[in-house]
Amino acid sequence: MTVAPHTLQQAQAYAAERAAASGSSFYYAFLFLPPARRAAITAFYAFCREIDDIVDGVREPTIAHTKLAWWRQQVALAFTPGRVPDHPALIALQPHIAPYGLTPEPLLQVIDGCEQDLQHNRYLDYPALARYCHLVAGVVGEVAARIFGQSDPDTTAYAHRLGLAMQLTNIIRDVGDDALRGRIYLPVTELQRFGVRARELLTLGHEAEPDFDARFAALMRFQIERALATYDEAVALLPAADRATQKPGLMMASIYRTLLQRVARDPARVLRERVTLAPLHKLWLAWKMQALGRW
């Protein structure tokens, strides 16, 4: 895999464009950060998007594994003194490694988590799903907390819990999209508990047994209530000393909680379309947390 050489300025522009084009809720929280922190988290987010897109966009597992192996080498280069990685996302991130005390391990864990998607399309139970969520989201929260300005070591536990809550939200929102890719992230034991069959999800309810809507709604209510409780648990873990610096994470939590509440009104909607919030609504929720400090 080859990438054209980039200057630091070009790399930063690439990362900023990647973040803005994604339409992600993360982007709206980044807007309220000071320039240096915004540049750092934007570069890290661009890296995460690149890794995630390999799993979602490459149909041949062998090619995907090769690409991820290349990214492992790029992470090693980024953290080697005197070396410069090839990809603009990591070129943009490299100047922020020392100022924010970043280490390669979380970035490699993100790759591990995405590689797991190439090997598993089901999770037996919630503990297994939570371990996956830690790799693809908990460690992302850990890096983000450092960049945002973490001062208390206990903030790491909050960041891991918030990452879990946000990944659970992604899973709930993406039930339909994931089914089209042959993936079901909702734990098998919980599907069985609510009487929902894998085939019913994979066919988006079109080949469902009687009462599917009721069974699916009950399953989704359980998922939503657990995710909402996980947000509350995360906030309870946030030390008072870091509440001001960690507002960007709380902004994202506010946006994601609101998305969950929208899904709760009509759980079956996730099988028909991707549930989203309007950009102006996301910006309003982010501003409210920044200005008022509440959901």
Score class of each variant (00 low, 15 high):
A92M: 03
P95S: 04
H96P: 01
T103R: 13
L107N: 07
E115G: 05
N121P: 00
R122G: 03
R122I: 02
Y123R: 01
L124A: 15
L129Q: 11
Y132E: 03
H134C: 05
L135G: 11
L135T: 10
V136Y: 11
V140P: 01
G141T: 13
A144P: 00
A144D: 04
F148R: 08
Q150E: 15
S151I: 11
P153Y: 10
T155M: 02
T155G: 11
T155A: 14
T155D: 04
H160M: 05
R161A: 15
R161N: 13
G163A: 08
L164C: 10
N170L: 02
I172W: 01
R173I: 04
A179T: 02
A179Q: 00
A179R: 01
L180I: 03
L180D: 11
G182C: 09
Y185S: 07
L186A: 14
V188I: 14
V188Q: 15
T189I: 01
E190D: 13
E190T: 12
Q192I: 01
G195N: 07
G195F: 02
V196H: 04
E200S: 00
T203L: 01
E207H: 10
P210V: 07
P210H: 12
F212A: 06
F212Y: 07
R215Y: 02
F216M: 00
A217T: 14
R221A: 14
R226C: 00
A227C: 11
T230R: 08
